[in-house]
Design a protein around this nucleic acid. Structure first.
Lengths: 127, 127
DNA sequence: ATTTGTGCAAATCGTTTGCATCTGA
DNA sequence: TCAGATGCAAACGATTTGCACAAAT
């Protein structure tokens, strides 16, 4: 997988890839992945986690999701799909693709084309 | 307007409100609003711009839009509507409401309800 | 007079970078 | 061997906070 993406399979990258891709679809911040790695006794620095996440993203193995503020989430599901965002615990959840659709999109302005459509459905606790 | 929102009409708040609301719909970062204020000889500190933007948001006069990274945009249009985001120059543009709709939303998870739906249509230059 | 807002500078948070060291092909 | 990767600590940009001072009711 790493070789295919033109990335050297180093210890750190292999361990991180393992954590990311062997447990189903995940939505992680760099911080969270780093903690998880440390917990699993995978010695890796935070800087390397950042580097790796960005390299994986460039290679098309991950997708960045902007939610708010500084925190960036990385999604192991790179297909076209949308998200629920739970404001209470800051967790992202995939919305089953197929069900949801965006209709009636107006023409983009002059000379522009759509690169991606992000849909984030924000959830709060029912009172 | 400020009194209605329970905010004391101070010089700074009045000046910032003027800049924000007397020029049609706007999408500004704190930084940008601060620069504009300084340019128009409205002496106000960046900290106060941040405070004011958040107070206005809480009072329902503004709406925050998350795009990516650290930068937060504040939108003077608080109605339900979606955005184009131009990756080239980092500008937000309202999408005419009415045209666009999101359909087929699945049930939110247990005990959760939808607080808001954010749609961001990312644009790139046509090649 | 009392409460609330403001400005400054320092602190914080997530993220990035420079650079010496290490590692995989 | 040696380009490329890693770790550390320092640098960074956007945002926030603590606190003395100023302005609004």
């Amino acid at each position: 997988m790493l070789r295919n993406a033109g990335l050297r399979p180093t210890r750190q990258r292999m361990s991180l890839a393992e954590l990311l891709f062997s447990r189903g679809d995940r939505h992680l911040t760099a911080e969270a992945l780093h903690e998880e790695a440390v917990k699993e006794s995978v010695p890796v620095s935070l800087a390397t986690v950042y580097n790796t996440l960005h390299q994986f993203t460039e290679a098309g193995l991950l997708r960045e999701v902007a939610v708010e503020g500084a925190k960036t989430y990385f999604d192991t599901n790179t297909s076209n799909h949308f998200h629920f965002f739970c404001e209470r615990d800051g967790k992202l959840v995939d919305i089953e693709p197929g069900a949801l659709s965006v209709d009636g999109l107006p023409e983009p302005p002059e000379n522009m084309e759509i690169s991606r459509i992000d849909v984030l459905v924000r959830l709060v606790e029912k009172r």
